[in-house]
C-alpha cells in the first residue's frame, strides 16, 4: 500500500531556461520549510536541488526534478533527456567543467556542482547513458 505520509512533487526544468533558473529549487525549499524541516537539512536539500537544476538547464536537453518527502528522509530524483555524461568519474572531479564562457559569466561553470551535491547528500547515486539520460538519486536523512 502507498504510504499516505509520503508527499511527491514534480517540477519540469527546461534547457537554457535561465529566466526561471532556481524556481524549482526555491519551491522545494518553501514546501520543506513549511513542513518545519530542520534548517541545516533544508540548506543541504536546497543546495543539492539548485546545483542539479542548474545542471539540467546548462548541460542537458531538459528534464525534471522530483521531490519525495518521507517521514524519515527526503528523496530527490533528477532526470534529463540527455546528452548524458561520457566519463562520470571525470565529471565528479571538483574543477572539471565543460561549461562555455557565457555560463561562466553567469557565475557558474566552476565544476563544483556534482561534488557539492554529493557532499550535501547522505546517499548519492548517478547514472548516465550517452545520448539518453543522466539520472541522480539523492537521499537526505531527516534525523
Amino acid at each position: 500500500m502507498e504510504d499516505v505520509r509520503k508527499i511527491k512533487v514534480k517540477y519540469m526544468v527546461e534547457k537554457d531556461d535561465f529566466m526561471r533558473a532556481g524556481q524549482a529549487s526555491s519551491n522545494i525549499k518553501k514546501i520543506l520549510k513549511k513542513l518545519g524541516l530542520d534548517s541545516q537539512i533544508l540548506r543541504r536539500v536546497a543546495i543539492a536541488t539548485y546545483e542539479a537544476e542548474m545542471n539540467i538547464i546548462i548541460h542537458s536537453e531538459g528534464g525534471f526534478i522530483e521531490l519525495e518527502i518521507h517521514p524519515d528522509k527526503i528523496r530527490i530524483n533528477v532526470e534529463d533527456n540527455g546528452p548524458g555524461i561520457k566519463d562520470i568519474d571525470l565529471a565528479m572531479k571538483a574543477g572539471y567543467s565543460t561549461a562555455p564562457n557565457k555560463i561562466r559569466e553567469l557565475g557558474f561553470g566552476a565544476g563544483m556542482g556534482l561534488p557539492n551535491i554529493k557532499r550535501c547528500c547522505d546517499e548519492f547515486n548517478i547514472k548516465s547513458s550517452l545520448g539518453e539520460y543522466t539520472r541522480l538519486e539523492l537521499l537526505i536523512y531527516n534525523k
Binding site: G22, S39, A46, I47, Y50, G107, F108
Partner: peptide, 15 residues
Amino acid sequence: GLVNAHTIRTAEMLD
C-alpha cells in the same frame, strides 16, 4: 560583483 538573479537565488538557497 556578479549582479544578476542567480546571485539572489544562490543566496536564497544558502539562507
